[in-house]
């Protein structure tokens, strides 16, 4: 009896150690790093890239979250028809072309075909002319309120997610390349600070899971490196598009912590820092995760 109890204690201690410390080499590398072949070869998205310079000593390689999913979920992203996120891209394109607001304009009135948005997603979030860090949602709402004279959309509303999805898809395959220097630097520093700050009763920082334990089990699931190049994602659990800030909110909530609001300055800064960790991975939006 006592030997069993001792064993149990030792195991509990080991489990606790896994969660409370950040061993430098606890991560598990993906077995393969095959590209995501879309529509039978129309487009190939690499799933691995050399880590950006600012991650020197942290990661050698950065990986798409797609590698950490099971075959059925992976397959859904490999065909634009089977990818349920694409219906919302269609809805976003419809919205792009719909006139709304007192100015009698649609997005297309100024920007013409949505293909003109190619490259936008790869550089988001980005410091605007006034020196503020803006997410794509901010740019969309600025156009809506100032140029279209329409109401701003809620950050996590279906219409907003449909639009960000439709705009993201235009950059699919382009490497993520957010600016982190110059005016962006203080925001990036703020985001970096948050990434390594332990939140909640579980006292977990982003890094505890996504840097120290990617590839490892978390309950019946595998952790990824927490890259954001696939956002907005179609998440099978919600059977809906999920925005980056919603995912951040969920992660902090899961630490049993008070979370920040979607569309808060804190999450914009975190969005920039996390995006910069994925600089070099292709825009996958709209990806499929579970």
């Amino acid at each position: 009896m006592s030997s069993i109890r001792m064993k149990t204690c030792a195991m509990t201690a080991a489990v606790a150690a896994l969660f409370l410390s950040v061993p430098s080499h606890a991560e598990t590398e993906p077995e393969t790093t095959d590209p995501i072949v879309i529509n039978g070869g129309e487009l190939e998205l690499p799933t691995v890239a050399p880590a950006p310079a600012h991650l020197e000593g942290v990661f050698d390689q950065i990986y798409s979250g797609w590698l950490f999913r099971d075959a059925a979920t992976q397959a859904m992203q490999m065909d634009d028809f089977e990818n349920p996120g694409m219906i919302f891209v269609d809805q976003g394109i419809d919205d792009w072309n719909t006139v709304e607001g007192k100015a009698g304009k649609s997005c297309a009135s100024c920007h013409e075909d949505i293909e003109s948005m190619k490259g936008v997603r790869a550089a988001m979030p980005k410091v605007n002319e006034a020196g503020d860090l803006w997410s794509m949602e901010d740019y969309i709402n600025d156009c809506r309120t100032s140029r279209m004279q329409a109401e701003a959309l809620e950050w996590d509303s279906d219409r907003m997610k449909n639009l960000t999805a439709a705009i993201s898809v235009q950059s699919r395959g382009m490497p993520m390349d957010v600016a982190i220097d110059g005016l962006a630097e203080p925001y990036w520093e703020q985001g970096r600070e948050m990434y390594y700050t332990r939140y909640g009763q579980l006292e977990l920082a982003c890094a505890n899971c996504h840097e120290g334990h990617y590839g490892d089990w978390i309950r019946a699931d595998h952790l990824s490196q927490g890259m954001t190049n696939g956002f907005p994602v179609y998440r099978l659990k919600q059977a809906a598009l999920v925005s980056q800030h919603n995912r951040f909110r969920g992660c902090i909530r899961d630490t049993r912590g008070e979370t920040f609001d979607m569309g808060s300055d804190e999450f914009r800064a975190l969005e920039l820092y996390v995006a910069s960790r994925g600089n070099g991975l292709p825009v996958e939006g709209v990806s499929v995760r579970h």
């Binding site: 089990w217 309950r219 019946a220 699931d221 595998h222 659990k237 969920g250 909530r253």
Partner: peptide
């Protein structure tokens, strides 16, 4: 049917 990792 498994229990997912994060809030799953």
């Amino acid at each position: 049917v498994t229990i997912g990792g994060c809030g799953g």
